[in-house]
Design a binder for these strands. Structure first.
Lengths: 196, 196
DNA sequence: CTCCTATTTCATCACTTGTTGAAATAACAG
DNA sequence: CTGTTATTTCAACAAGTGATGAAATAGGAG
């Protein structure tokens, strides 16, 4: 029972830990997710986390390094509907957030918000993997893009928070259509309307 | 030294614990704020927290029960500028969030987001102490108010998150004026414009 | 003054946390 | 077949957590 040494078969312990950790961090936050429970879920010994990652902090870093990549979606939306991208963007974003990986991402976001160091990671990730791709596809003068994109981010993140985290009604139960018609114009204005 | 028994003078131990706990929860989150440190800051024994509140959970509940009351501000703004309340509302909100108590409130919000039970408290507080007062002052038909107010909340909360928690640039360093002109129209539309 | 009660300190408990080091073993190079 | 290395399990530690119960004491009631 539970002999020592490398596990037979090409078992990828490191990957097993990563998926267990992603769920744990997303569902229970950084403090709530214990090294021991993650290891148990992954079916390995707790000390494997230190062996493979160095410690709990580095494990979180590793997990945060694998987010959904929104670049294809952004390119598709902004390329396809240049005049009123808000509706299309919102539609795809809502679908993405309500998918399995999307919920995990929201959970990770949620659990990263209350530690200053992890908030820094979130900011970097947001800038590099979400806002930068959007800026690259925009048509307005380059100098305006950072400001417009940060405005866009406020509306998007606020929507996530209110609908999926705080779950305020009637927003939490609203149809996608309702949200798209209500919030779409805001997105359009932030992306290409009058903002100063 | 440190004799037992009630402290001489009308020392209000319970209140001392509350102010220490508010700061601690706001700055370090629920898990980060330890009973021992809170007690040390308040200058009392850790067991006083159990004696006066019953435990750490009940202490958090007690702290969450004392938020800023936005009702006067809301009434003033919506009463004074009925046609374009967005700008005035934003101006006062920005000032409020950047005040001492406002930062504390944001910290509390931040630290409450990653526990389901405390998120429930935040929702209740938000509905009762913020959204309800706003709805009471609105001029649009009553049936539309919950929906409009929840839209308003997404934009406001997103702004808080991006500017004060995640601190994305250039939003984090933007003037109040910039923000007001960029986001004000969004607020106006959510409060009295076309949203469906 | 005397008793009583609420308040406070102290010592300690039971538990969980992340982490470490040594021993055991599978896979691979030669 | 042999030696080496990386991987894994096991046992344990040091630190810190929230909580508890008993002893001590100040202030108010009678």
């Amino acid at each position: 029972m539970a002999r020592r040494g490398p596990r037979p078969g090409g078992a990828d312990t490191r990957a097993d830990i990563l998926v267990a950790a992603e769920r744990a961090f997303a569902e229970q936050g950084y403090d709530g997710a214990t090294v021991r429970r993650i290891a148990a879920t992954a079916g390995v010994d707790p000390s494997m986390i230190n062996h493979h990652f160095g410690g709990k902090d580095e494990l979180l870093m590793a997990v945060l390094e694998l987010p959904m990549d929104p670049q294809p979606m952004v390119a598709a939306v902004l390329g396809a509907s240049p005049t009123a991208p808000g509706a299309a963007l919102l539609r795809r974003a809502l679908a993405a957030w309500e998918s399995g990986p999307g919920q995990l991402t929201i959970g990770m976001l949620r659990s990263s918000l209350h530690r200053d160091r992890t908030v820094g990671l979130v900011r970097q990730l947001l800038e590099r993997r979400v806002l930068a791709p959007i800026m690259a596809e925009m048509t307005v003068p380059e100098a305006e893009r950072p400001w417009r994109v940060s405005l866009l981010a406020t509306q998007m993140l606020g929507l996530i928070m209110m609908r999926y985290v705080i779950r305020i009604e009637p927003l939490a139960s609203a149809d996608h259509d309702q949200i798209v018609t209500a919030v779409g114009p805001t997105i359009d204005r932030y992306l290409q309307g009058d903002v100063d």
